[in-house]
Nucleic acid binder design. Sequence first.
DNA 1: ATTAGCACTCTGATCTCGTGAGCGCTAACT
DNA 2: AGTTAGCGCTCACGAGATCAGAGTGCTAAT
Lengths: 345, 345
Amino acid sequence: MEELLKERQREVLKMIVSTYVRTINPVGSRTIAKFYQDELSPATIRNEMHGLEERDYIQQPHTSAGRVPTDKGYRYYVDHLMPEPRVLPYVVALVAREYREHMDNVETLIERTSKILSTLSEQAGFVVFPAFENLVLKRVEITSLGRHHLLIVWVSDNGFVQNQVIDMKEDIPSEELLRINRFLNQELQGMLLGQVKLHLAQKFDQVQDSLKTVYRTARGIVNQSFPKEGQRRLAFEGSHYILEQPEFQDWEKSRKLFKTLEARDSFMDLLQVRQKDGKIQVKIGFEHHCPDIWDCSLITTEYRVGPRAIGTLGVLGPRRMSYERVIGLVDFISRRFGEALEQWI
Amino acid sequence: MEELLKERQREVLKMIVSTYVRTINPVGSRTIAKFYQDELSPATIRNEMHGLEERDYIQQPHTSAGRVPTDKGYRYYVDHLMPEPRVLPYVVALVAREYREHMDNVETLIERTSKILSTLSEQAGFVVFPAFENLVLKRVEITSLGRHHLLIVWVSDNGFVQNQVIDMKEDIPSEELLRINRFLNQELQGMLLGQVKLHLAQKFDQVQDSLKTVYRTARGIVNQSFPKEGQRRLAFEGSHYILEQPEFQDWEKSRKLFKTLEARDSFMDLLQVRQKDGKIQVKIGFEHHCPDIWDCSLITTEYRVGPRAIGTLGVLGPRRMSYERVIGLVDFISRRFGEALEQWI
DNA sequence: ATTAGCACTCTGATCTCGTGAGCGCTAACT
DNA sequence: AGTTAGCGCTCACGAGATCAGAGTGCTAAT
């Protein structure tokens, strides 16, 4: 059904999209005709446009204006028409340098990455922190804070550090704390964090009664200090780029967009959508389900260390964006970012 | 020189500011006259206004408009006229609940605090993370990551955790790493982090030659893993509130503002200005030195644990804001925030 | 199937004009 | 000396009115 378009219609659609993305102005028949160097007249182009408009690939903002791609038009462009995404040399160089120099810790690495995504795409860039459950435990440290609090620091592979303060009703002597700490490390090192709780529960059943009290305390500490599922941090940079787009000169529009972006929830919901393995995902305008972001498109992909996909990153920008450029960028950066993480196993 | 204003002029200025802040419309003589319930006529008020305008406390956007406070007018209002800042009961309750429930770790505590500042002021709220040097070391842990990297986790009092990955040229055997780790903890626990480097240097000179190699490695690790000075994190929330202010409907204006806010540097520079001990600092419009933020006012104060002031928090909003309300809020929250941190000594 | 030609439509810029808010000034009043 | 009524003046703002330009759709000829 998609493929009804005749070759010349495809050509015209391609020109309309790429021109509109560049110029921001509705594209008229004369503009397209120029590409054909007098082989075709504007009138002919108008006919083709008419066909495209009937099939809902393009539309007119108003009667006497040129044409603008619809979501369906963009979609067709991305799926069938756009040139192979490619990464420019200066991008390669810049990213390489960045990952050579700014490797302080994972948080900064992630923040820099979202900044790079943003700067190079000239749109908003983001990186979702990995889900705790998908990481592998390297080490855990318990420290007592004040009288009634413990600080638990979880260190996982790839340099991720997660810390959590928990309330203590009862006092635990510091030697016991030390023992528990040692035990947890012995028991859990190298384990996928998502399996830790279950593992401890099983262990608990097997252990002899005299040790149950200590085990209970240990389990209590672990359970409490485990970050709640679904609360994933997000590094988001460059929302001002969105504001700079002429289509967001409309105050009401940008006001709403910023409000929902800052609230994070609905945006994070969008990202939770399961990614197609290793593929770049492109959501154009109405294709996603958050009304306030309907004026935007979302380019995302998963990043991975070794075989494991552990998180999502991408770019958010106006529907009118250079898809080939941004798709190439997101793909490239996700690989390099993964590689950077892999150094820290 | 400030005090030249006669009593009635002060009254009129006060009314102009408080009315303008509420209504956003330039305030006319008739509006003020109404407050006097027919004791004074608009004409009289106009005379007083004339005096105020001559002395630059108020101005007219254009000839036939009402009056709007100038920066000087706001300043006078804040210093001499505004009612005592007070904190509403619902704010007290809300903040108390917040700090009872969301105490996962310092990062979230800080982020929630900036969110609270933002929500309750209906403006942008922020908290600058404490300077590393001002914290007291509780514990340090060294973990090796991959082949050539070490992860160092610094845990300080009040639950602050700072981690850093460093490159290792030479391999260090894991027993030696363990020894160094133990040594560092023994040597440095309870010390102000700002003094750590110096302390190690002095120690190094005293130690016998056979131990120097180990000491050198230890110092190397510490020096590399110390966060660079001046790079302080910032939690910033609620920039959308700024966008919602009618005075920022101007696209160009808000575009610029957001750009500088996102770059962070110039904004952080503003905040680096030494705070007057424990006082709330109010910077109105042109009083600070960052051109792109001239349309905004900045209310800041330091937060402290015990006697030590360790960081800054505050609110950024349009010049036209309810100063008494925001000042009260910032003051209140900074205290509560400090108290929350003190639980985690 | 293509195209020249023409009438038609709609936007956006520019201008004018009327309205209303608010002021300053002056002269009279207390 | 302070206050006020009265009046004329100024200016922003919104509603029409007008006009040029861009781009279309349709028709008839190629």
